[in-house]
């Protein structure tokens, strides 16, 4: 009996090792490759260098793109939060007609193909005879990240007892005071988590931006995408690794410091 159990757990461990290798392998290859002294892939690991990261200084177009991506991410996360937080409050606190349909509508950007969202925004701008602008880019990113804000906020609010807010109401606090003095402080972690997660989701997104970039507003993923069309080398691996490290740091912060579970 005990032999069978240990055989079973050995099999389970072997399966998990294979799955983790499969799922984490590609990103690991990028990070390892970014330290390779070889000048292009495919290549063996020829030697260790930090040089590709220093190369970033010689590519101002990547730094510009990084700056654009940070701006877009921040605007999208901000707009998404301002609009998404009230949605989460409404969904957590009230029952109303068509609640299921309204929830599905608000979460729809998560299941619609992002390339279609980006193209639809291009069609709107074309119909209004506006050129593809920074504004269009920021707006469609905001549409896309809002559901993540709602989700992060909801996961915080469902644990929150309404009695605190009701107590404040009975003491004469109006709706704004209750929101600013009670709900906001209690759900601070959820708000921060939603903002960071929304920023990450905008920051790494490519298909939303594909048709909306202009020479002056090109996001980092689009810049990487264009570079990868001509060559695959340790430099682009270094750029990719930096985004990965930033994203790991952000999600670690959300899960471990803010203690908001976004994925479960």
């Amino acid at each position: 009996m005990s032999a069978r159990i240990s055989l079973g757990s050995a099999g389970a461990i072997a399966w998990l090792v294979l799955i983790y290798l499969f799922v984490l392998g590609p990103a690991a290859v990028v990070i390892i490759g970014s330290f390779n002294t070889a000048t292009s892939f495919p290549s063996d690991f020829e030697g260790f260098t930090f040089g590709w990261y220093a190369q970033l200084g010689e590519h101002p177009e990547f730094l510009d793109a990084l700056f654009v991506s940070i701006q877009i991410g921040a605007i999208a996360a901000f707009v998404g939060s301002v609009i998404g937080i009230p949605v989460a409050l409404a969904l957590a606190r009230y029952d109303f007609r068509f609640k299921g349909m309204i929830t599905a509508f608000i979460m729809a950007p998560l299941i619609l193909p992002q390339i279609v969202l980006g193209m639809a925004m291009l069609q709107l701008l074309t119909a209004l005879q506006l050129p593809a602008t920074f504004l269009g880019l920021a707006l469609i990113h905001a549409v896309f990240v809002m559901p993540y804000v709602v989700r992060a906020m909801l996961s915080c609010l469902t644990g929150l007892s309404p009695s605190v807010s009701e107590a404040a109401a009975s003491l004469g606090a109006n709706a704004w005071q209750r929101f600013l003095l009670i709900t906001l402080p209690i759900t601070r972690a959820g708000i921060m988590a939603g903002f960071i997660f929304a920023f990450i989701m905008s920051f790494i997104n490519l298909p939303l931006s594909l048709f909306l970039t202009t020479p002056t507003s090109t996001t980092l993923p689009i810049r990487m995408f264009a570079y990868m069309e001509s060559q695959i080398d340790p430099f682009i691996a270094a750029v990719g690794s930096l985004t990965v490290i930033a994203v790991i740091a952000g999600s670690f912060f959300i899960e471990k410091i803010l203690k908001v579970r976004l994925l479960a």
């Binding site: 290859v29 495919p42 997104n205 990868m228 691996a237 990719g240 790991i248 994925l263």
Partner: peptide, 20 residues
């Protein structure tokens, strides 16, 4: 959480890895 890391890292980096 570790397993779900690629969905946070984004498809671009992951696809770069597959290309290599």
């Amino acid at each position: 959480l570790i397993l779900s890391f690629p969905m946070l890292a984004g498809p671009l980096v992951v696809v770069l890895g597959w290309m290599i």
